[in-house]
Design a protein around this nucleic acid. Structure first.
Lengths: 201, 201
DNA sequence: GTCTATACGCGGATAGAC
DNA sequence: GTCTATCCGCGTATAGAC
């Protein structure tokens, strides 16, 4: 499973043959088919892992008492990033499914359900007046979780999710101009170059 | 070309056969091969269109005199969205290339060059002190353009790029809390209202 | 559990008639 | 320019020996 999904993500599902998986494991195709009924079964297992984890994370957010709409949205974003990092191969594969087969169509259907729940959370936060209302909530939702999902393009397995989560939430909610995001007071002015940070790559 | 690239984007490049393209056109495979040397040539033409357009857009930003680092970054974001919408099928295909063949590897190499230029712009804007410096510029760049690139997942051909561009820039630079971006102040009493929302729908 | 051997279809690509 | 016919390799999947 692990080897297969990694190959699917590196080369694409359709471009990866069962022979590729076998070779990577030092086995033959037949050995694979002794343990797995079909190539597509591997795909299904992986996308189900991703969908189950995402659904559970959203359920947990919904079940948490005492959160207002903005807190729920922030929790949903944090959870999404955590699940994405924690189940990186599975989520990566899920996000690349096209819907060519019934299995893929079912995965896309479940995914649309999740996207819908996230979009609802955004809308509720906007309706609550805690978020800017000059943008379409649906557009906000798509951009926000498009940013989250784009993490699969560059995050490496084993990355610590916490700082990443902080960065995503900070950027999404406060933007990249320095405004009210620093602790305590509003910054008055930051003008002038060379603020002495040499952040390496 | 148009039909082929659309199919590539709907089904995936590897999952789309030349026969699929032919059928969609009401022709046979042979008719396709009379006009095109190979399936991969179709891919190359499309990704080249995307890469050329993106490169030209960045060149135009770089060539514009009198812009500071932040203005250049904003222009780069706007240009990227515009190119993405304007060349939606080609850019979509580009963003899904895996690097399995020499053609794809070359496309990825060019794309990395573009990503590098965008990352440099972000870093320059941060170094200039106009953007928040509590986040790694490289992370900012990846999240920012990950958000931009995620547009290919849901933008439809023929969409007007202008409002989309505004939304992306607004969200990216100002975030989704209402802060200093809109004239007039928002209601201030949201703090303790707790469960004061009757969820619509 | 893994192997060799194999069935069988579909994929990209070509030859040559019209 | 488009067709029919065809080549050939590789893909998924299975049978059956060890």
């Amino acid at each position: 499973m692990r080897v297969a999904v990694d190959l699917f993500n590196r080369q694409g599902y359709d471009a990866t043959s069962v022979g590729d998986v076998a070779r990577e494991l030092g086995l033959t195709k037949s050995a694979i088919y002794h343990h797995v009924p079909s190539k597509e079964h591997l795909l299904q297992s992986a996308v189900d892992e991703a969908l189950d984890a995402l659904t559970a994370a959203l359920d947990a957010v919904s079940a948490t008492a005492g959160l207002d709409a903005e807190q729920r949205l922030r929790a949903a974003v944090r959870s999404s990033v955590t699940v994405l990092v924690d189940h990186l191969p599975a989520v990566t594969l899920l996000l690349r499914v096209h819907g060519n087969t019934p299995v893929e169509k079912a995965a896309l259907a479940r995914r649309r359900g999740i996207d819908q729940r996230l979009a609802d959370m955004v809308r509720e936060a906007v309706d609550d007046g805690v978020l800017r209302d000059d943008l379409d909530p649906l557009v906000i939702s798509r951009l926000l979780f498009g940013m989250v999902n784009s993490l699969v393009e560059w995050v490496r397995p084993g990355t610590d999710a916490a700082p990443l989560t902080d960065a995503v939430v900070a950027l999404a909610f406060d933007g990249l101009t320095h405004g009210a995001h620093s602790p305590g007071r509003r910054p008055s002015n930051q003008a002038g170059s060379g603020s002495g940070r040499g952040t390496p790559r």
